[in-house]
């Protein structure tokens, strides 16, 4: 159970999340990508926590990340719903009123 494989998994998940965030037009799909990236970070935290003498700081931080992610998801989805009501679409390329 080498740490490298966990770190590589985290990196892979992060990059997959990044790819999803960048390529998807739908806002909810983008959110899914963000969740993936957060989980990749969590994985790193928990993995290093496994080799930590105290063993708990990483886990506690992971807990907080999960909590924040939940808050983020709630607010983000609220925004998406509102945006959908306003623009009648959830496609990010069409929600560009602020472009220069």
């Amino acid at each position: 159970m080498s740490i490298d494989i966990l770190l590589l998994l985290g990196a892979a998940l992060f990059c997959i999340g990044l790819a999803v965030v960048v390529t998807r037009k739908n806002a909810i799909a983008v959110l899914i990508g963000i969740e993936l990236m957060l989980n990749a970070a969590n994985l790193n935290l928990v993995a290093f926590s496994r080799f930590d003498g105290d063993q708990l700081q990483g886990q506690i931080f992971a807990l907080f990340v999960i909590t924040v992610a939940a808050a983020e998801a709630a607010v983000a989805l609220a925004i998406v719903v509102k945006v959908y009501q306003h623009f009648n679409t959830a496609d990010l390329d069409q929600i560009n009123e602020l472009k220069g």
């Binding site: 990044l18 560009n96 220069g100």
Partner: peptide, 18 residues
């Protein structure tokens, strides 16, 4: 040219940043 960068597309910004 600079206008096209400020496209309002967040994903474009992310891509550029990355």
């Amino acid at each position: 040219m600079t206008r096209s960068i400020q496209s309002g597309n967040v994903q474009g910004y992310i891509m550029a940043a990355m």
